[in-house]
Design a protein around this nucleic acid. Structure first.
Length: 459
DNA sequence: TTTCGTTTCGT
DNA sequence: CGAAACGAA
């Protein structure tokens, strides 16, 4: 009787799950294991929004496994210790998991492999579980480089790759009976979550994907940047927790076809792109990918401005709308992320890490690779070789929220003010402006622009 | 085969 | 500015 452990991390599903399939193919019994990792808590990544979403995911995964005759085993502690303990209890000869990209995930895999070897247990890390294409599977032509630094050539190669076949969910999962498990966490017990937080779980992910492909994706190409249209897939939390397989999402989108599908698959490729950058440069999670020698503003004034940004009261309506959506939903429209990030890093000229951290504190899809590298892209320290792009929040508002509906939704103080004026309320005559209980701009745009250009001129 | 210079282009 | 591709050497 052979037994395997499947360590779940960011892959909380039963469909299209190579580690689970491999374990079932090789062994009679499998222990599906999730460890609430103390190291994740120590790093401050176990935030309410994601803990609540995670609770849904674990409950759903447990239910799916029970429907197949198994169950999910839940532990908490140091991940290596807990896996080793379960391996011992189950007499397992192999452990399967999805390969991860972050420095932490890479170290975890290394430490796990070492610890298990001394117990005579093998570790199998599976590619193309967290991403559609494994980091390092595609490399640029010229020698020396271990990753792509430009998206377009990466997309070309990524698109030409034959996709890994999508694996179905297993019919049966036989789990040894004497392996103890903790109670799964309850979503309702998590405090401090965003009121409009989306539900988690693989079932929800699959319903969302089906609905998206049937009725949402068709207008994605035209409307994905329209803040009020809210025409994005909202699949990001499911991709982050792995309740949805990126391989399956891409495959089913390609089958659905059309320009919307192509634009959506392109976003899945962006996700892989950022993962392969982080896998090759794990330090980029906390340090400039390209040093631009920025002297980010510090001190009292800057801190106050950053606080106004976090609280959605910068006086720039579309920025504030985006920041309030983040607080309320634990999610933000992608266009909102871009303009909010540009505002912090370029207009306020505050350290991108401060903004990235705030996003990770609230985003239900808060993903190290996507979040940190998109922030770096916007801050001009990322892979982009043209570091001086600044998004003007007024122009962004006029362009991506032309009728002001997004601002009206999230900044109700301005609900009575029509576009285009809603994007620059400070230009209202003083008497009229006083009717709206809305702050004046924290900084002047042209002053901010000059300050930024000046700082970049003198490294 | 490998290295180097040139051209193109970048969410 | 600098990555990537490509063709010349």
């Amino acid at each position: 009787m052979k037994t395997a452990v499947v360590l779940y991390t960011s892959d909380l599903r039963v469909h299209d799950h190579p580690p689970l399939r491999a374990a079932l193919a090789a062994c009679d019994r499998v222990v599906p294991l999730f460890v609430r990792d103390r190291a994740v808590e120590r790093a401050g990544f176990a935030v309410p929004n994601r803990l609540a979403f995670l609770a849904d995911c674990l409950a759903d995964l447990d239910a799916s496994l029970r429907g197949r005759g198994g169950r999910l085993v839940l532990r908490s502690g140091e991940v290596v210790d807990e896996v080793c303990a379960v391996v011992r209890e189950a007499g397992a000869g192999e452990v399967h998991l999805a390969a991860g990209v972050s420095g932490y995930a890479q170290a975890r895999e290394r430490r796990l492999r070492e610890a298990l070897r001394s117990q005579g247990c093998a570790l199998h890390a599976h590619d193309a579980v967290v991403t559609a294409v494994a980091p390092g599977a595609l490399l640029p032509g010229g020698r020396g480089s271990d990753h792509f630094a430009v998206f377009t050539p990466y997309l070309r190669r990524w698109s030409a790759l034959p996709p890994r076949p999508v694996a179905g969910a297993p019919r049966a999962v036989r789990v040894p009976e004497d392996i103890g498990s903790e109670e799964p966490p309850r979503r309702s017990r998590v405090t401090g979550t965003s009121p409009g937080l989306a539900p988690g779980g693989e079932g929800e992910a699959r319903r969302l994907l089906t609905r998206w492909l049937r009725s949402g994706i068709a207008r994605y190409e035209d409307a994905h940047d329209d803040l009020a249209a809210d025409a994005t897939s909202r699949l990001s939390p499911h991709l982050h927790f792995g309740t949805l397989s990126p391989v399956e999402a891409a495959e089913r989108a390609r089958t659905a076809g059309g320009p919307g599908a192509e634009a959506f698959v392109r976003q899945l490729c962006w996700r892989d792109f950022h993962h392969q950058v982080l896998a090759a440069r794990p330090a980029a999670a906390a340090r400039d990918y390209r040093a631009r020698h920025d002297r980010w503003r510090t001190g009292r004034a800057a801190e106050e401005e950053v606080l106004a940004w976090k609280e959605g009261r910068t006086g720039y309506p579309v920025v504030d709308a985006a920041m309030r959506q983040l607080r309320h939903e634990g999610w933000m429209h992608n266009r909102g992320r871009l303009l909010a990030a540009s505002f912090l890093a370029k207009t306020l000229y505050a350290d991108w890490r401060t903004g990235a951290r705030h996003f990770l504190d609230l985003l239900v899809d808060g993903d190290l690779a996507n979040n940190q590298l998109n922030w770096q892209w916007m801050a001009g320290t990322g892979t982009d070789t043209r570091p001086n792009r600044v998004l003007n929040p007024v122009r962004q508002g006029l362009r991506y929220d032309p009728d002001g509906r997004y601002v009206h939704r999230w900044v109700p103080e301005l609900a009575g003010l029509a576009a285009p004026r809603v994007h620059e309320p400070w230009r209202l005559p003083a008497a009229e402006r006083a009717r709206y209980d809305y702050p004046a701009p924290v900084v002047d745009l042209s002053e901010a622009q000059a300050r930024f250009q000046e700082a970049r001129r003198h490294p």
